[in-house]
Amino acid sequence: MKKFQFLWIMLSATLFFSSCGDNRSHSQGVYMLVDTSGTYAQEMGKATKIINYLLATLNPGDSLAVAKVETRSFTEKDIVARVTFDKRPSQATQQKRAFKSKIEEFAKGVKGSAYTDITGGLIQGAEYLNETKAGIKTIVIFSDMQEELGKGTVRDFPIKLDGIRIVALNVTKLGTDNADPRIYLDRLARWEARVRKAGATDWVMVNDLENNMESILVTR
């Protein structure tokens, strides 16, 4: 009887201490969309730098995926590399090295696409991030935010980006933007309104990649 009593106490104590653990996810999930359409494909060097920054900043247990924005981007085929870093720092470092190699390979052979399906990429990114069950989810869009859809591509429907931060990077001005800046501003405002309506927690735009890279990720 006394043995059972002891076991019962031990079990209760174990349950009590296990319930003390924080069940919330503290990991980050980052999905980076890299625009490879037209002249923007030349910006790949900058994109690599940003990916390197993300690799340096993300911690064990975090997830990172890099996908290209093409004619139709709502497909896993466009994901260049994805990884959920191991909980052990040494393994995470190895994974980061492997990820870097993949990105370097991709950067060497990048080809410009005819159209830019940012919405498809966003939906794909949201799907990936929800699967990772990360605590903080971020979609980084490395693009001029000029969406050009091919014939038969349907994207004019409400999307769901609940609990996801959207960070637009290196939003370059197009020739037409220089002629009429309102086009540029309208474009950005439209995207902000769209992602906020979709349930995004935040909309951040970073054009100064030299000094403002810290804004890409939120600190814990």
């Binding site: 003390c20 653990g21 924080d22 919330r24 990991s27 064990p60 247990g61 720092p89």
Partner: peptide, 20 residues
């Protein structure tokens, strides 16, 4: 503290700011 994360994992938290 750092090498212990190699044993018990670096991304496990006991509370909001307290790493396992």
């Amino acid at each position: 503290a750092l090498p212990m994360s190699e044993m018990v994992g670096a991304s496990d938290y006991i509370s909001n700011n307290l790493k396992t």
